[in-house]
Amino acid sequence: MVNGDDNNARITNGNLAEVGQFPYQAGLNVSFGNSSTTWCGGTLISHRWIVTAAHCLDGAESVHVYLGATNISDVTEPGQRHFIVDQSGIIVHANWTKSTVTNDISLIKLPRLIAYSQTIRAAILPRLVNGSYSLYEQQTAYASGWGRDSDSSDSVSPVLRYVAMPVMPHILCRMYWSGAVSEKMICMSTSSGKSTCHGDSGGPLVYRDGNSSYLIGTTSFGTSMGCEVGFPAVFTRITSYLEWIREHIPDLP
């Protein structure tokens, strides 16, 4: 089952990331009009744009963006950059539907271009291969974020963590979720209690080919039974939204 709380995913039982290991990772401290905040992840896809989940930014007034960070509790960490983005820099998919968690994707435009460095570099969007996009099934993919590191934890992790798990065949994921997973979603196997869950929402699911990191998903939702139970984690499938992304970022490489 999906419930509202489970749209905030975290990395459970993950590995600690090294500085610069995930240079495309963004941290998002999202502020709302009622003075509440929530923590999400995102992915840098160019010198100025970040992709994340719609449910992270729906109703947001502003976002404090962290780039180049490994330890978000240490703002003096070398390589970190911080930006404040107001509503004018937030684009939520017009057809985002909370009840079915469909079109769970949004964009953030940074107030200025950012230079790449050892700790900050964009992920690559998927490319056509022989006229079609890969489904990445059974391929190892990396999910990362600062979310809670266990079901018993009550706060996000100050240090970036990650898991490397195979992409689940879509037909199998649909069986787990009783058909609630559409073709515009992609799933990750979550054995040994390793998964995304509260605090990682909107963060990257990346396939690596040599030194290239391809963004294939953004963390969307998980089961209300807990993040360590082995139920598939669900992500928005980036290849289903490449046209939408390029409509808003026409000069994207």
Rank of each mutant, 00 (worst) to 15 (best):
A143M: 09
L125I: 09
A123M: 12
K109F: 01
I108N: 06
P111D: 12
I108S: 04
A115H: 10
Y116H: 12
K109W: 00
R121H: 13
S132V: 15
L113H: 01
A143E: 04
T140A: 09
S106K: 05
S106R: 06
G145M: 10
L110R: 04
Y136Q: 10
I114P: 01
I114E: 13
G145E: 06
D104T: 04
W146E: 03
D104E: 10
I120L: 06
S117E: 12
R148Y: 04
S106H: 06
W146K: 00
S134G: 04
S132E: 14
S132Y: 12
R121A: 13
I114S: 02
Q118C: 08
A115Q: 13
S132G: 06
W146L: 05
Y142G: 02
G147L: 02
Q139T: 00
R148S: 10
L110Q: 06
W146I: 05
E137Y: 10
Y142D: 11
Q118S: 15
Y136G: 03
S117T: 15
L128N: 00
T140Q: 13
L110K: 06
A141Y: 11
I105Q: 03
I120D: 04
A143L: 08
T119P: 01
R112E: 15
G147A: 06
N130F: 15
G145Q: 10
E137D: 12
R112A: 13
Y142E: 13
L125Y: 01
Y133V: 13
G147R: 02
R121Y: 10
R121P: 01
L107Y: 01
S144Q: 05
R127S: 13
L107D: 01
I108V: 12
G131N: 13
L128I: 09
G145F: 03
Y136S: 08
A122F: 02
L128T: 03
W146Y: 03
G131Y: 11
A115M: 11
I120G: 03
A123I: 12
I120M: 07
I124G: 00
E137I: 07
A123G: 10
G131R: 12
P126F: 07
P111M: 14
Q118F: 09
Y133T: 05
W146G: 00
L113M: 07
Q138D: 13
T119S: 14
R112G: 06
Q139W: 04
S132K: 15
I108C: 05
I108M: 09
I114D: 05
A143K: 03
Y133K: 12
S134M: 14
G145W: 03
G131L: 15
A141P: 07
R148F: 05
L113D: 12
Y116K: 09
I124P: 00
A115N: 14
S144E: 04
I114L: 09
A123N: 08
N130T: 11
G147Q: 04
Y116T: 13
V129L: 08
Q118G: 11
E137F: 08
R112V: 10
S117N: 07
A122M: 02
I120A: 08
E137N: 04
E137L: 09
L113E: 10
Y116L: 08
A141I: 11
W146H: 02
A122I: 00
D104F: 05
L128P: 00
L128A: 03
Q118R: 12
R127C: 04
S106C: 03
N130H: 15
V129I: 13
